[in-house]
Design a protein around this nucleic acid. Structure first.
Length: 307
DNA sequence: TCTGGGGTCCTAGGACCC
DNA sequence: TCTGGGGTCCTAGGACCC
């Protein structure tokens, strides 16, 4: 990411290893900048990387995918492809609908029922009908199929949610194990919140049973929090709403959303909360220095034994 | 192709308020 | 007290992406 930022401040990190870079203000042609970036990443990081160069994010992303797919050898792809401005629709037209970024198996299936198989088919389909059939997604789909994408490169992407989940090696029905697992997950979520200086207003749990059926439940708190114990208590309340004694569980997850910077407003009788906060920050520091498992709370300790 | 562990965004219904 | 319209917030689930 810092290599990319040395070319332009307009870098939008898309995932752990992908980003959009807006180089439209630079004087050099995009393909040359792309080659330079690729060379530096190859050389300085000893990593392969693929790039797409285009007039918008959608086409740049898809050019990358097409470049990677056309790479035929055992070595990792280190491809580069430019789609010149004006040729977006032409570049897309013969690709299958599923290749369109944002179209997955479900949407592709629905489109196929309408006789739409390629992105070209999609571009030719009346936009109004798509809008009626697919709602907001329909009109976006239509524009994207014609190579139109006006989304800007956004530098800052604040985190929207934080979650931790775990799948048991074998399904568990023991109430103690399940509850301690939930609180362990809540602690990890709390730690990540405090690390980022964020507080969450919504707590969510996810539970998957042996038959793979999956349920989520969420609550909005009266006050945003970054405290393990509050996240854990809320998560346990939600857990009790869906779990019946003896039911084997395959997966448990705890998540938070509604994130914002913490405002620690202390009411007159909140001394115990303040003590808890100090304890947590001491624990956090110990973990940062000696590792995640350096200090464990009572329930986490018992969980280790269960495992 | 599936699994696992993260995420984002959208939809739809209900509650509530003006 | 009821009706209607519009807006916001909350909740649950689903589609999609890496």
């Amino acid at each position: 990411m810092s290599i990319l930022q040395s070319y332009s401040p307009l870098v939008e990190q898309l995932s752990i290893d992908e980003a959009f870079v807006d180089v439209s203000d630079l004087q050099q042609p995009g393909i040359e900048i792309g080659r330079q970036m690729q060379n530096r990443i190859n050389r300085e990081l000893r990593l392969p990387c693929s790039l797409g160069i285009a007039s918008n994010k959608l086409i740049a992303k898809m050019a990358t995918n097409v470049a990677k797919a056309s790479h035929r050898s055992a070595s990792p792809p280190n491809a580069i492809l430019e789609v010149p401005a004006g040729q977006e629709a032409d570049f897309l037209k013969d690709l299958p609908t599923e290749a369109l970024w944002g179209v997955g198996p479900k949407t592709a299936e629905r489109l196929a029922l309408l006789g739409i198989h390629t992105i070209g088919d999609l571009a030719a389909f009346p936009e109004q009908r798509l809008g009626k059939l697919f709602g907001k997604m329909g009109s976006e789909l239509s524009a994207h199929a014609r190579g139109i994408d006006n989304r800007p490169v956004i530098v800052e992407h604040g985190v929207k949610s934080i979650s931790q989940e775990t799948t048991f090696s074998s399904d568990r029905a023991d109430e103690g194990v399940l509850k301690r697992t939930i609180c362990g997950l809540a602690e990890q979520v709390g730690y990540r919140l405090r690390h980022k200086g964020l507080c969450a207003s919504t707590v969510r749990i996810k539970i998957r049973f042996s038959d793979f059926s999956t349920f989520t439940r969420q609550v909005t708190l009266s006050q945003p929090t970054d405290q393990d114990s509050l996240i854990c208590d809320s998560a346990l309340d939600l857990f009790r709403r869906i779990w019946q004694k003896g039911q084997p569980v395959r997966l448990l997850g705890v998540g938070v959303s509604g994130l914002d910077e913490c405002v620690h407003q202390l009411s007159l009788w909140d001394h115990s909360l303040e003590k808890e906060r100090k304890l947590l920050s001491a624990l956090d520091r110990l973990r940062e220095r000696y590792g995640k498992d350096a200090v464990l709370r009572g329930h986490s300790l018992r969980k280790k034994k269960d495992d």
